[in-house]
Amino acid sequence: MALETRVYQKQRTIKFGTLLKASLSDMFQSRFLARQLAERDIKAMYRQSYLGIVWAFIMPLTTAAVWIFLNSSGTIKLSDTGIPYPVYAFSGTLIWSIIVASINSPMTSTQAAKGILTKINFPKEALLLSGIYKLLFDTSIKILILVVFVIIYGVGLQWSLLLFPIAILGAIIFGTTVGLFLTPLGLLYKDIGKIITFSMQFLMYVTPVVYAIPKTGIMKTIMTWNPITPILLTARDLVVGFTPEYLNYFLVVLAICIPFLFLGLIIYRISIPIIVERLSA
């Protein structure tokens, strides 16, 4: 039996191929650990709470409710969305919350494991994977609520709904990629987390979350160029059964995300020891 050999030294040359392979194989091998960690966090969260699962969708639901009220009371006047406004608003805030959660996921998962990161050597990719498992759990509950909403407001179930999870997967890939790039910095400086929360609030208004893209003007340009727009619109179109207008743009964004996701994984792998050193110093 050959013994596995590990070498630790200051890295001089970086081979992206080798690192990526190591990262992906670690992620694959740590499936059990990732599941265990996700299960632990989910169980612990619900065991110490009465409302439990409600917290997964209470935020998007209340945001949607505010906008539904603003619209129905005539406080603000929104252009026609083509579907009942409550469905539009709720689907928007829900998909938005999934994107925000996936941007935050890599950082929060790693941050939460700070205690063991500085003490025990285990495949760190498991943390990312467990974050994604948790996201998928939350997301599936959100999707169920959304389906209920769609039925109540008489939009009816569409065959395209079956493709919806794929669009959501796209949203998670996009969010995780962005999150991965912010993670190393965010672990060093608390500012990054605050900046994310802060800027996501503004970003929501330049994404067709609670209102449609205007026909003309500067807002139209910004919203069209915003890479989150195609993800959100494609996902929503699939729910309500419209032909996804932005499908091509969606695919382009996704295609760009994949290499960046891999790059993010490599950066994550390189940066963890550097960060652990600063955390425990």
């Binding site: 630790y8 890295q11 050597n121 652990v276």
Partner: peptide, 9 residues
């Protein structure tokens, strides 16, 4: 910590 691979030398 270095021996355990937690931080790089």
């Amino acid at each position: 910590k270095i021996l355990n691979g937690l931080i790089n030398p």
